[in-house]
């Protein structure tokens, strides 16, 4: 898959997200982040809690402001102040699915309203009949019955509630869906259902996903490319299988080594690698975002980069 010929849906350029800290000063949750998401792909953003992965997702749907850098949707800047029409378009085209279906649905509203709320917000006048039809269609698409529209969220299980959350995004006919840990609050047996649903919708509608998660085994299964983020910086980006076969950055390697496998004998032999940021010597030369070839990027200085390239060529990495 070469990147040049593919349509870029979303591009982040030197994105920085900063928050004001009590007592003055700012905290940079996201620093110098660059990546593109291509049309139709599932792009995984993986990191531990506090790494800034959610802040990136929220900056894309413009819940958080980008403090510097830019976010481009199909070549047009969507961060900061933007014209009204573009704003309405972006609201429709970029939708979000949240982590906790128990917290992300309005308990006092019926499913009918929850699913169609977005339609009211974009100000397109629709007859009541049309709106109902759209809700019914969205519910069917996520495997729920149209009758459920008249019920309240508490009448549903966690998996069903997450389906409602997905229906609410789908009714807007989005192109890009930012899914922030969409299955981590769900039970094991339900996770597979929701993952399958996300994949089948993607195939049917040609959707693009930004899949934010901390569970690498899930991310490996569902994504085409992965960016690994640590302390607000992307440390490595590659096609999914490439990343798992040849992880370069020590942080990525530590993260991959920590994934528990359903294999007792292998687990008992396993040695978990620990990432120590002190292993980098950036006193002389700081790290830069560099391509090691084939769309595999890593944050490294020239000395480290050389070691990675040598390691790859010799088959050690």
């Amino acid at each position: 898959m070469s990147g040049e010929s593919r349509e870029v849906v979303l591009e982040l350029r030197d994105l920085e997200v900063a928050f004001k800290v009590k007592g003055g000063g700012t905290f940079k949750a996201v620093k110098g982040v660059n990546f593109c998401i291509y049309k139709g792909e599932t792009f995984g953003l993986v990191g531990e809690s506090g790494s800034g992965k959610t802040s990136i997702g929220r900056a894309i749907v413009r819940i958080n402001d980008a403090s510097s850098g830019s976010i481009l949707y199909k070549g047009r800047r969507i961060d900061g102040r933007i014209p009204k029409e573009l704003d309405l378009e972006v609201v429709r085209k970029i939708q979000m699915i949240f982590q906790d279906p128990m917290a992300s649905l309005n308990e006092r509203a019926k499913v009918d309203y929850i699913v169609s709320e977005g339609l009211y917000n974009i100000g397109v006048k629709r007859s009541e009949e049309e709106r109902r039809e759209l809700v019914a269609k969205a519910l069917l698409e996520v495997g729920l019955l149209p009758e459920f529209a008249s019920r309240f969220p508490h009448e549903f299980s966690g998996g069903q509630r997450q389906r409602i959350g997905i229906a609410r995004a789908l009714i807007m006919e989005p192109e890009l869906i930012v899914a922030d840990e969409p299955i981590s609050a769900l039970d094991v047996s339900i996770r597979a259902q929701v993952l399958n649903l996300l994949s089948s919708i993607q195939k049917a509608k040609g959707l693009t996903y930004l899949f934010i998660a901390h569970d690498l085994s899930v991310v490996r299964f569902i994504t085409d490319r992965i960016a690994v983020i640590s302390k607000g910086r992307i440390v490595e980006l590659a096609e999914t299988e490439e990343l798992f076969r040849h992880p370069l950055h020590p942080y990525t390697r530590a993260l991959i080594s920590a994934i528990p496998q359903p294999d007792p004998l292998a687990e008992r032999r396993k040695v978990v690698k620990v990432y120590d940021p002190a292993c980098h010597d950036y006193s002389v030369e700081g790290p830069a975002w560099s391509d090691v070839g084939g769309g595999h990027f890593v944050l490294a200085n020239s000395k480290e980069l050389e070691a990675y390239r040598e390691g790859l060529a010799a088959g050690r990495l």
Partner: peptide, 22 residues
């Protein structure tokens, strides 16, 4: 069923085994 639904055992591009019903 529980083991089959693990993403570690899934084949990319194919639906993951999922337990139907409740």
């Amino acid at each position: 069923a529980l083991l089959s639904s693990l993403p570690q055992l899934g084949v990319k591009g194919q639906p993951l085994y999922s337990i139907s019903g409740t």
